[in-house]
Simulated assay, not measured.
Amino acid sequence: MAPTREQLVRIEAVTRSFGGLVAIDDVTLSVDEGELVGIIGPNGAGKTTLFNLITGFVRPTHGAISVRGTGIAGLKPYQIARLGVARTFQNLRIFPTMTVFDNVSVGAIGRESVSPLTAFRGGTYSEEISRRSWEALEQTGLTDVAAELAANLSYGRRKYLEIARALAAQPKLLILDEPAAGLNETETAALGQFIRGLHEKGLTILLVEHDMTLVMSVCERVVVLASGRKIADGPPDQVQRDPAVLEAYLGAE
């Protein structure tokens, strides 16, 4: 018998309204340990709102969300991060005047139950913070620019920098919000290989992405949102044949 996998995220009948706009409409969804799940849908489908709900940046109007069995109602984003969730953002959020190493160290510090001042004593990071940061830099191929200002990186390497910062928190669940946005075809293919590599090492990943080729090539399971509602959930080949998906997202007549 296969071992029971931990349920990392459970979203139960969640709705999120912004005034008269319903961004997420009665969505139920779960992500288990070891999965690589893609979230797709047209602009305005509610994909980023769903990520913001899971990570505590917005709260549900109705419904409940749990992370690793803990209800997150009322928890702040840093408290949810300490449950093992790390994320990137659709719009890059790096610190351009800090070094690459310092940017990544922010993620490592965020996982600790200490203040940045405590983690940075005597002008240097603790051994544990440094270890996590260097491991994340090695994973993302950024060790050669560790001492560079983040502002000096190319756009593509800034994308990896944000992923490195998330990895430095040593998450159970990595949430990637449109990591291929702005990348060319070659860079996107390399990113796909990188994401698959992370997953093969055991990391659970939740991916929002507009690049259908990337999603369908790396994800084991795809969830489709349209107008805030979940309209499909299954293997990529099954989802691509779903009439509702073809009509709502893939351009079927």
Rank of each mutant, 00 (worst) to 15 (best):
A190W: 01
L207S: 08
A226E: 13
L198C: 09
A166W: 03
G182S: 03
A244C: 07
S217A: 14
L250F: 09
T188W: 03
A226G: 05
Y249I: 13
R221T: 09
D177E: 05
A226M: 08
I163Q: 07
V218G: 09
A151Q: 13
I231F: 02
R157G: 05
T188P: 01
D177N: 07
Y155R: 04
R221F: 02
E200Q: 14
S154F: 02
L191K: 11
L206D: 14
L161M: 09
N152I: 00
E185L: 15
E209Q: 02
D233Y: 01
R221S: 06
M212R: 04
V222Y: 02
L161P: 04
L174K: 12
C219Q: 07
E162K: 03
R221G: 12
K201I: 07
V223Q: 08
I205Y: 10
T186Q: 15
A244I: 11
C219T: 12
Q240P: 12
P179F: 04
T213P: 05
L176I: 15
A252Y: 09
G228M: 08
E200A: 13
E247S: 13
G202H: 01
I231W: 02
I175F: 07
P236A: 09
A226R: 03
V245H: 12
G156P: 01
A181I: 01
E200D: 14
L198T: 08
A180M: 00
R157S: 11
L250N: 08
A169P: 10
K172A: 14
P243M: 13
A226V: 06
Q238N: 09
H199I: 04
S154M: 03
L214W: 11
E185G: 09
Y160F: 15
Q238K: 07
P171R: 01
P171A: 07
A150R: 03
T213Q: 10
A190Y: 02
D242N: 15
Q238W: 05
R158T: 07
L207P: 11
F194Q: 12
V218A: 02
T186Y: 08
E209C: 06
A151C: 02
K172Q: 06
G156C: 00
L207E: 02
L203F: 00
L207R: 03
T186M: 12
G234E: 11
L173Q: 06
D177C: 07
L153A: 04
L206C: 11
V223N: 13
E178W: 02
E209D: 05
T204W: 02
A181M: 04
R157T: 04
I231L: 07
L173W: 07
E220R: 14
L203I: 11
H210L: 04
L174N: 11
Q193T: 10
P243F: 12
A189F: 13
A150W: 00
D242R: 08
D242F: 09
L246M: 15
G202R: 01
V224P: 05
P235H: 11
L167F: 08
V218Y: 01
Q240C: 12
G182V: 05
I195L: 12
G234D: 10
I231G: 15
A189S: 13
L183I: 07
A164H: 09
M212N: 08
A232N: 10
D177Y: 00
P171S: 05
P243S: 13
V245D: 12
R241Q: 15
N152W: 00
R158S: 10
A180T: 00
Y155M: 03
G202K: 00
S217P: 10
V208M: 03
D177P: 09
K172P: 05
G156H: 00
R221M: 05
A164P: 13
Q193D: 15
L250T: 12
A164V: 05
